[in-house]
Design a protein around this nucleic acid. Structure first.
Length: 289
DNA sequence: AGAGCTACCTGAAGGC
DNA sequence: TGCCTTCAGGTAGCTC
């Protein structure tokens, strides 16, 4: 599922339930997701209070009062849903007026909090994973040590992007997907940002004209911000934490639109699908050069 | 060091 | 209807 906007949407939905709450009961229904759960996973969570819920790249980070942080990655098909039973009225009125998905054989983890809320992690493909990391050393952990810039942070500037493109060797698509350079973009939003900047995904990153770095920088930020505002993109699995769908898929210019007319004003092109690194790339060969 | 590929897993969709 | 193939929002861990 989830690229940065989907993970950020989930974070915002979970934050009022997680932060300040203690784990009253934790149910782990299988020994592993993509990787085995950490040793004594349940014991290390029970009784701990969540002091913050942040996001880095496509990871959710629940900081605990034990000095550890629970890092969670949703893989391709992971989702969290808040189950209403026992939730306090203040939370329920905000978050529970949408229909919720039913219990499923792919519900792998259940968190019960002392505020009455129950949060269920569902992941059919089980590419997601959870890890407990000492908070003080969080960014020394191999998961985070080499991650690149947060594209919505102040540190991600047009100049930094220009330097990234100049130092890269591969095509633009692969460069923007590389989490060590920019952290949080995935297949959808790379395709969409490149279309907005009128750059071909096949063009060598190093060949992007200097002025184009600025356009691409703006396109990346705009598409991510618009997608977050729309609750992310629901293709199959993504749900907001309250069960509501994301809506940004209706705003796609190119992703999953092979054969459709290019939506750019005045462009008579047709969206094409190619394979890059074994993954689908969608773009308009007419206006993206 | 870095680029490129495979593997992990289930389910949906399309061709025959 | 059923069987087979292909594809899907990601990335760790191999090769070369």
């Amino acid at each position: 599922m989830p690229e940065l906007p989907e993970v950020e949407t989930v974070r915002r939905g979970l934050q009022p339930v997680f932060v300040g709450a203690r784990f009253l009961h934790v149910e782990k229904r299988r020994p592993n997701l993509r990787f085995p759960f950490p040793e004594r996973f349940v014991e290390r969570l029970l009784g701990r209070r969540v002091t913050s819920l942040e996001r880095r790249a496509k990871y959710l980070l629940a900081e605990l009062d034990s000095g550890e942080t629970l890092a969670m990655h949703l893989g391709m098909s992971g989702s969290f849903r808040i189950v209403a039973e026992g939730a306090p009225a203040t939370v329920a009125s905000e978050a529970f007026h949408f229909p919720r998905s039913k219990a499923s054989e792919h519900d792998h983890v259940v968190f019960d909090f002392d505020n009455g809320a129950r949060v269920v992690y569902n992941d059919p493909r089980r590419f997601g994973f959870m890890k407990l990391i000492p908070t003080d050393d969080l960014y020394l952990d191999p998961l985070f040590a080499d991650l690149g810039l947060e594209p919505l942070s102040d540190r991600f500037t047009a100049e930094k992007l220009s330097a990234i493109l100049h130092a890269a060797r591969g095509p633009l698509k692969a460069t923007l997907l590389d989490q060590k350079r920019i952290a949080g973009l995935g297949n959808i939003y790379v395709c969409e940002a490149l279309h907005r900047a009128r750059l071909s995904p096949e063009r060598p990153a190093v060949s992007a004209p200097p002025g184009k770095a600025k356009a691409l920088h703006g396109a990346i930020r705009d598409v991510l911000e618009e997608a977050i505002a729309a609750g992310g993109s629901t293709l199959r699995d993504h749900r907001q934490a309250d069960g509501e769908l994301g809506y940004f898929q209706h705003a796609f210019a190119v992703y999953d639109r092979e054969g459709a007319p290019c939506p750019r004003k005045g462009c008579k092109g047709t969206i094409k699908r190619i394979a890059q690194g074994g993954r689908g790339t969608f773009y308009c060969p007419k206006c993206q050069t």
